[in-house]
């Protein structure tokens, strides 16, 4: 502990405090749907669904977007229905 304290004090704005800053200022991810209190995700709201899909058409994982598991299940179903009704693309291979 002593050595750590010395490093932080002597080296000023070097590695140790930066780590701390990152830890403190990284905002915690939260579920967007829980915040707005959306009860059911409709496949017709394709503009909302587009935010949770990559350019290639892949569904983004919940650990990236921060959506809770409850809404992620509904989201994935809604996206698949939207694909069937031609609101969204199916998965395409990356070009280049």
């Amino acid at each position: 502990m002593r050595s750590n304290q010395n490093n932080s004090t002597t080296s000023g704005s070097s590695n140790a405090p930066k780590y701390q800053k990152k830890f403190y200022f990284s905002r915690r991810k939260y579920c967007v749907f829980c915040k707005d209190k959306i009860k059911f995700i409709d496949y017709k709201n394709y503009k909302i669904l587009e935010n949770f899909v990559l350019e290639t058409g892949k569904i983004l994982p919940a650990r990236v977007t921060g959506v809770c598991s409850y809404h992620q299940k509904q989201l994935s179903k809604a996206i698949k229905r939207a694909r069937h009704m031609a609101f969204l693309k199916f998965v395409e291979p990356k070009r280049g």
């Binding site: 009860k39 059911f40 496949y43 409850y70 509904q74 229905r81 069937h84 009704m85 031609a86």
Partner: peptide, 19 residues
Amino acid sequence: MRFVILRLDDRLKKANKLT
């Protein structure tokens, strides 16, 4: 060309759980 048929009762059950 395409069609979808959905039952909407499930929404109410899910909504009650969420509330």
